[in-house]
Amino acid sequence: MKNRSSTHKQRGQSAVEVALLVGMVALFVIGILRIMGVDLEGVFCRVANGVGLQTAVCPGSGVVFWDDFSDGIEGWELDRGPNWRIEDGELCAGPGPEHRAYAIDSEGSNYTISLDATLKKGDGYGVYFRAIESNVNGYTFQYDKGFGAPGAFIFRKWINGQEMSPFRPWQPAPAGYQWFGVKRHVVISVRGNEYTAAVDGQVVATAVDDAAHPVPFFEDGRIGLRTWGGTEACFDNVQITMP
């Protein structure tokens, strides 16, 4: 009597063989595409973005700047303050005197800035936009614990390095607002002379700069970060999207 199992004919390929075959075909196709000059990274990013995946390598369409600080503080001009550092993969500043840093390749006019930020202690942090020159001309959105009794979310203009009175009306923070120790998602929209800021999806401040001669109006410039008043704050996933 024959052993059934030993005489059983094996047909087709095993999973390992199929995987090897697919891998070889993939390598062959990739090689051909590379020879033909196809931008494979671009293709990969389009696929990744298509399924909603955004990374520093594939930041998505319209994204002109992205920094998750995985490669340090490169790309930032540290203008003021002694305590800029990378801590747990985030860019942190303070405590101490005023700290300022500008993203080097962030020149623009109309854009949307988004970032994750955590205020650890102190008066608050700010996000510069349309900032030109070190002694800054431009604007900031400020997550300002130290502004008034409950703190507030405000937009300010800077002229020749002078921080100007905030745009009115400003919006005080709600009573009991948790300023410290919470990572907030901040989005700032800059369109023409209208600026809007949202924190964790809630619009917290709007401003319209209706400046006319001789009041200066700033049309473009870089983005940046600042802390003041003994603040310690950390920033991550800084992104600029252009319309």
């Binding site: 002229i159 020749n160 002078q162 100007m164 009175s165 001789p214 009041v215």
Partner: peptide, 18 residues
């Protein structure tokens, strides 16, 4: 001479006047 934007700053905060 002409129109100017005068900036007055006290305690670190400026206010402008045309």
């Amino acid at each position: 001479t002409g129109d100017q934007y005068l900036i007055v700053a006290s305690e670190g905060v400026g206010q402008g006047y045309v």
